[in-house]
Design a protein around this nucleic acid. Sequence first.
DNA 1: TTTACTTATACGCATTGACGAATATATTGG
DNA 2: CCAATATATTCGTCAATGCGTATAAGTAAA
Lengths: 134, 134
Amino acid sequence: MELFFQALGDQTRLRLLNLMGDQEICVCYFVEILQQGQPKISRHLAYLRRAGIVQARREGKWMHYRIVMPPNIGAAQVLRQTLDWLKDERAMQADRARLNKACCSPARFNALAGAPKPIPVGCTSDCGSTIEVN
Amino acid sequence: MELFFQALGDQTRLRLLNLMGDQEICVCYFVEILQQGQPKISRHLAYLRRAGIVQARREGKWMHYRIVMPPNIGAAQVLRQTLDWLKDERAMQADRARLNKACCSPARFNALAGAPKPIPVGCTSDCGSTIEVN
DNA sequence: TTTACTTATACGCATTGACGAATATATTGG
DNA sequence: CCAATATATTCGTCAATGCGTATAAGTAAA
């Protein structure tokens, strides 16, 4: 419980969770959208993974991250409320807007040229060689 | 938002919030129930106060703390959910049980001999010289 | 005003965590 | 195997935090 809230107590991690909201997203998208160094993004994703809040899936060179609801009822409810809260915040809305823009025309962002787009969760079209991590 | 979750990311502070749940409680009760040093309790209460999650009221020598709902809708909802979550946790239930016992017979706890009992929130029977703090 | 009592804060120390830079690991394609 | 790409981890540094001890601040009563 302590660990759970500690994981939410960081601006960068909240921004990451906000972007994942309801999609599975590639690390390179986080780096591009948040305009933060790649090691920093990876570290925070690892933190969230240790806290059991996100899961990773490898697809070739790319790693996709998505939110997983905690088995504990209380934790799941708090997490859901938190995600709703994020949607109300101006800065978070701006991040989501930038993600949508990048999603629609990845070519505009050099770094995202060949990267896989975010995938809405529940879309179980297995694209081939993907491996669940953690 | 970051500060809010950081405030919840500590075991002692979660125990304090659990005990306050729906009553206003005197510092000496926290010290007795949690069996922790008084400076430690005070420090964590100060942290919660800085985060805007609790308020203090002075009554003579005693300080009473109570939870205050954040003005932000999202924060309030998350806080409420969190308090409900606490009620489901074994360790937290044990703390509440000890509080009730101490409440019913403060005389049994030396340290609580003349201390004011917890007061259910909403009970606006102003007992005289009380000062809102913060 | 002196004393006792309750609570808050200052101090020193140890741990944790965040960061950038550099480097390691994993995968793909030549 | 080698090079290129994407991601993870390590390292050194610095700020934040938690703790116990000691002490300060506020209040009530003698």
